[in-house]
Design a binder for these strands. Structure first.
Lengths: 108, 108
DNA sequence: TATCTTTATCGTAATATTGCAATGAACGAA
DNA sequence: TTCGTTCATTGCAATATTACGATAAAGATA
């Protein structure tokens, strides 16, 4: 079937999964790391930096924009990308909340 | 082509992506949250708790075991699952490192 | 032994993702 | 206007993921 049954999960669970999914590809991790380092850049920079084709980078950028992690600002004939601080902090909080527990499993 | 070009990324980037990917499905988020709450449980508990079929839950559990997030301990004819504390902490550290920066983008 | 319970695996179908060539759109420069 | 630059979109092929019925494997129970 291949169709995720989102309706049986909470909004929050679906949101966390969506944010994690966007980090679930090394190209998007690399894009985020590069943007953390240089704060802002254009698509062409990332094509040179990462080594995937321009359409592929563009597609990854769109997915990152779709969940709100990136913003793009048109500047002449190029587009300046940077991280959306709100979503970036939302992700930090969500993962910290999910991963900040004590987990001493007794059985294993 | 559908084949991720892992070889052009660093070990660390691929590892982060792999850990994120496992949280990139709401069922696996729900499994992790349940295990955080109850510390340990068997597969059948999760089937009742989450509402997916037993083979589907088993498949998700396997992916979580594959990256080391879960451990399973055979106990009679059932399997007791719990969180692997080391990987859980590794994930916390990795995401904290990735998401703990200052990101004031100037262009957007 | 026969049966029940519990979990894993196989097989399959449907959908999703990844990647890129080709093309289009929009701006700047000559 | 014409050409070059930059990025998005389209279209396609290949691989990956999601989900579950059927079945197998293995310990528990009668």
């Amino acid at each position: 079937m291949g169709l995720t049954k989102s309706e049986i999960f909470s909004e929050k669970q679906n949101r966390i999964a969506g944010m994690a999914k966007v980090l679930g590809h090394p190209a998007r991790v690399a894009i985020l790391q590069h943007l953390i380092k240089v704060q802002e850049c254009i698509c062409g920079d990332l094509v040179g930096e990462i080594g995937l084709s321009q359409p592929t980078i563009s597609q990854h950028l769109r997915e990152m924009k779709n969940i709100g992690l990136l913003k793009g600002n048109i500047d002449g004939n190029s587009v300046c990308y940077c991280i959306d601080e709100n979503t970036y902090q939302e992700m930090r909080s969500a993962f910290e909340e999910l991963l900040g527990h004590s987990v001493g499993g007794a059985c294993c």
